[in-house]
Amino acid sequence: MGGVDAAGAWHADGEVLGAYSDGRLDAAGRWSVEAHLTSCAACRLQARALVDPARLRRLRAALIEAVDVPRAGVVERLLVRLGVADHTVRVLAATPALRGSWLLAVATTLAFAVLAAWVSRGADATMWLLCVAPLLPLAGIAVAYGPGIDPTYEIGLAAPLGSFRLLLLRAATVLGTSTLLAAAASLMLPRLGWGAAGWLLPSLGLTACSLALATTIEPLRAFGITAGAWVVAVAVTVAPPPPSSVLFSAAGQVAFATLALLAAVVMMVRRGRFEADRGFDTTPRFAARRLR
């Protein structure tokens, strides 16, 4: 069995390999072949003739695919499980704001708000969270999209996936995650009640407002102005004692819901502004020097 090459070394010939593959060798033959195959490149190449080429190609393609696409993160895999399309998930994964650092910052901020509530334990216990929570999605979306923030902003503008859709997709994700975190924080407040969810509609309203504003001015500035307006509004309307604000009353909530709707309409009408560095739409250009 086998054969000896010019240098006198033992090699398994095709016949021996075939017999091995079919299970026709005795134990000693099997062991010889196996021990030899692990270290002899020449004989390994002979084994190629014993495997269906289509099978080798299929395995190779599957392997290349598996290795090319790096293992998705936990959140990514969860989203895919939930039925979100894989390409959508990839776009979200590229959102700068969705990196761990941002999530950590949001969680820390909320933790402080909850801590403050526990320390004060008074009627103003929920005020901190109510005021801070609506600001979080603003900060997140501000660092989710735009020139100087999204490294592929320029390439994205020249791509058919509408920049507006990209922005909405990311805004929705940031809003979603910060809302989830804020909801979790609300549950940890000392006294639970519907009042603890008072940040939800302002959150939505401010986000929509800032996006609508971003159709006329630089996105970062739009978010800054909206956040500033919120802080001022809270400072002006907060009335002690015990601290409360008309913003979180029933009327205030209705107002924010209306604001969110109005802003959404404005955003839809003016969405062409997001489609290019300098827009293609015919609406008056308030910021011709934007980005320059």
């Binding site: 593959s21 196996e34 004989c43 014993l50 495997v51 080798l56 190779r60």
Partner: peptide
């Protein structure tokens, strides 16, 4: 290096499959 990985596969996949058959 992806090319090296492909080469390694081409070298080792056939005998591996043959041996797994046993």
């Amino acid at each position: 290096d992806s090319d090296a990985f492909g080469a390694l596969y081409d070298q080792h996949a056939p005998w591996l499959l043959v041996r797994l058959r046993r």
